[in-house]
Design a protein around this nucleic acid. Sequence first.
DNA 1: ACGTGATCATTT
DNA 2: AAATGATCACGT
Length: 233
Amino acid sequence: MLSNYSEPPETQEDLLTRAESMAGHNLAEVAAVTGDEVPRSLRRAKGWVGIVIENYLGATAGNRAVPDFEKLGVELKTIPLDDTGKPRETTYVSTVPLTDIEEVEWRESPVYKKLQTVLWVPVQAGKETPIGERVVGRSLLWSPSEEEEAALRKDWEEHLDVIRRGYIDNTTGRDGEILQIRPKAADASKRTWTVNEDGNSIMTKPRGFYLRTLFTEYLVRRYILGVSDAEWG
DNA sequence: ACGTGATCATTT
DNA sequence: AAATGATCACGT
């Protein structure tokens, strides 16, 4: 059943217990505990689902650049699922570094660090289902396996190589098998500094790393629905 | 200005 | 219909 937790979770086990308590309850119920108001649409409340679940679980970070559960080193990510159980949206991971990247290494990168330990919380998100009636699913506390890390790293290295060479403006959302780069800003007019192929400073769109739905669908099926490799598909 | 949380909306 | 590019709100 739902509880009103006044303090941040002390342990990962505590966090998982809290997450499990949401399973089967809808967002109106969770928001009633946290005191958040349920919007009629997410159009002007795009981060609402994530915020409510953060509030319920006792996340401490706010919008500071630290893990959601700082003491536990755990990031929280919600996964919006359509009525067939597939992710409706990609998952934002971090800003794409565009300056001072000559010597950045994978294990020091924000992508690696943010994905070290993630609490994935699936949430029903069929577009006909009113926000408050959307049901929270079973959560997964995950750290990447060797294979998963290798796949993430391969995409990251390829993206970083392109950026280091000064070709960020040649990248599109089509690049990367599971980790893609897309614009991430308040609007399309925003610009930030980077270095072009001649070594000159130029302005370009701020961008973010996103996990393709292919990857989060894999996580849901493999670890939450318990689909084995043998019965894949 | 930029980082937090993401979803919207146009294109393919 | 899926995927890419654009966008929204709030906090520091």
